[in-house]
Computed example of a mutant assay.
Amino acid sequence: MSNALTNTEFNFPGQKSVYHGKVRDVYNINNEKLVMVATDRISAFDVILPEGIPFKGQVLNQIAAKFLDATADICPNWKLASPDPMVTVGVMCEGFPVEMIVRGYLCGSSWRAYKSGVREICGVKLPDGMKENQKFDEPIITPTTKAEIGEHDADISKEEILKRGLATPEEYELLEKYTLALFKRGSEIANKRGLILVDTKYEFGKHNGKIYLMDEIHTPDSSRYFYMDGYEERFNKGEPQKQLSKEFVREWLMDNGFQGKEGQKVPEMTPEIVQSISDRYLELYENIVGEKFEKVQAGDVLARIEKNVTDYLNK
């Protein structure tokens, strides 16, 4: 078992500041570029779990980089280069304070809300009589606010976004257009791999007055996938779907009495649990990307990242 990278404190050329997110450490270079390091930290229920997951950062970074390249014709995105398997460098954008969540199927938190009697999510009305994991006639957009550290994201409607001035009507129209087009492309790529892209989230920002897609895209941390094979049969029998996402981590936590609520304790993450989560991430990569995952184990990971990024910035 290799060591997981859970903390970084680099000092890159031109570095102005660093922001440590739940999973990514983001370095500001001269207020022009961002160096985003995908660490091996893992979060669930907005809580960073105590153990890192080996190769998770590499998995997330490489999936996101491939999908950013595969969707660059749909909308501009922030990526400039991936100088290291765990790093993407991109243009600095001023982010919209909302996440665009798009759902093709009724599951996860939307199903939990629906089951409790909710029939409207983020201003989108849902019909009676739907079942768990049922496909919507058309994908729906259910945005959330971007939470401050330690707070939970909150659902928000299009009307509320416009009322609060979080985006102009013209900007929001473009955000919706990009969101649906990206989801369509992601779904088409997934279908070719025998997968269903169930739901995902996109983050957008502005650079020189233009809207850019930012952050990660179509990764198992930001998206949920079902296996296409057996979907109908399981759905008709009311059985759980076989899925590729971080949901298995949430389920393990819930089974052990943890949902991120006050007073709850994260269950012990034994080496066996950590290894099993790492194995699942490699499985996710190979299924989503359709290629064998090549583990990069170049001794001192911090030294490797520092050299690769510094060489790139000094070019």
Rank of each mutant, 00 (worst) to 15 (best):
Q241T: 10
E239K: 08
S222A: 13
E239L: 15
G205V: 12
G230Y: 01
S222Y: 08
S223C: 04
T219C: 10
Y225W: 07
F204L: 14
D221N: 06
K206E: 12
E232K: 14
H218V: 07
I211A: 05
D221S: 10
R224K: 09
N236H: 09
K237Q: 14
H207M: 06
Y227C: 00
G205D: 13
E233A: 11
D229I: 01
T219M: 10
G209Y: 09
D215N: 00
G238C: 03
P220L: 07
D221M: 03
S222F: 08
I217Y: 08
F226K: 06
I211S: 11
K206C: 09
F226D: 07
E203V: 08
Y225F: 15
F235M: 04
D229C: 01
E232Q: 13
I211Y: 10
Y231M: 05
M228H: 03
Y227V: 00
H218W: 01
H218P: 01
I217P: 01
G205S: 11
H218T: 04
F235P: 10
E232I: 05
L213Q: 08
P220D: 08
S223V: 02
Q241I: 12
H207Q: 04
T219P: 13
S222R: 08
S223Y: 04
K237P: 00
E239S: 06
P240C: 01
K237R: 15
Y212P: 06
S223E: 05
Y231W: 11
P240V: 02
E239Y: 10
S223L: 05
S222E: 09
E239T: 04
P220I: 09
H207D: 00
F226H: 11
E239M: 13
M214P: 00
N208F: 05
D229E: 15
G209A: 12
M214A: 13
L213P: 06
F204Q: 14
I211Q: 11
D229M: 02
S222D: 06
F235H: 14
G230R: 07
P220R: 06
R224W: 11
H218S: 06
H207L: 01
F226M: 08
R224H: 06
Y227W: 00
T219E: 02
G209W: 10
D229H: 10
Y212C: 11
G209V: 13
